[in-house]
Amino acid sequence: MNEAVKRRIFALVALAVAAGALGTIAFSDMGEDLVYYWSPTELLARDDAMNHTVRLGGQVEPGTIDWDKEAQTVSFSISDGSASVPVSCKGNPPQMFREGIGVVVEGELQPDGVFHTEKIMVKHSNEYKAPEGTETDPRKLYSTLDQG
């Protein structure tokens, strides 16, 4: 076969392979098994989640933050709108932590029904604003959390 024809066939095959792989990833549900974190609803629905290190993500439910200086913990609830899980964190939460913000915590749900963590990660929204004037409604930040 002519070299030039061969090269073009190679190009088309490579394109087909790439497009096929992309289509498979985009339209199959293989993403279902690739979860970075569970929502409270998902976590509570699983009976195998107890005592395993997992990530839990959702909104810090307003009015639930409680600082315990003696025990050096901060406790709050993470909610996804329909379910909520109480969380207890040992150590300092990050500076952006506040009521209503999206967070992902790493830790485990223990038999006491409380999710124990030492790592709170704060999820920022895709809104970037100057400080003066209107402030972002923290509830809006959550809107980018329940994607996927």
């Binding site: 985009a26 993403g31 990660m121 920022h124 929204s125 895709n126 809104e127 329940d146 994607q147």
Partner: peptide, 13 residues
């Protein structure tokens, strides 16, 4: 960031 729940925020517009 659109297909999977992630830590990273979505594209800003």
């Amino acid at each position: 960031v659109r297909w999977w729940a992630s830590m990273h925020q979505q594209q800003s517009t």
